[in-house]
Amino acid sequence: MNPDADFKSDLLAAIPALRAFAASLCGRVEWSDDLVQETLVKAWANRNSFEPGSRMQAWLFTILRNEYYSEYRRRRHEVADPEGRIAARLTTHPAQDSHVAFREFQTALFKLPPIHREALILVGASGFSYEQAAAICNCAIGTMKSRVARARSKLGQLLPLEAHGTAGADEAIENIGQLVTAGADRGGGDC
């Protein structure tokens, strides 16, 4: 295999995570597709600066978020996902109640400053440690921890009161919140 072919297949493998990050970061379907496309082009152009063996996903996420913030300055006046198209295409929320809760969650999430939203996504959904998330965002680990904490507490204020009780409902609880907390302890201990 030549290096370009290897690089290409690594990029291909990273696309689903890039798309998920972009969609939850910017909340607008077209924009997130553009972001992923730009990221791939930039990554390709800079493929010689990627150090094999380092974590490609983190490298790509860094590129994507840089793209996002340079675009964000131009697009900040646009409303995130005005028609709820991300929610509309989702299929995992057949029950009306949980669909409503999900829409409410999205509305709240996209009210957060992007710097807080990305912190929450990287640590709470992408599975990065605080250390890795801090490296992606080019900030100190302590800054990352405080961003995540603020994001969660702000979300808590933005969510309607009934959301505070839904986790205790009939359905089995995966308790991702605890995973996030465990991630916090791990991030603090390893570094």
Partner: peptide, 16 residues
């Protein structure tokens, strides 16, 4: 509150 934290975690993951 653990319930709200769990709720946020679940919703975030389902979006992602």
């Amino acid at each position: 509150g653990p319930e709200l934290q769990a709720h946020i975690g679940r919703q975030l993951r389902s979006l992602y």
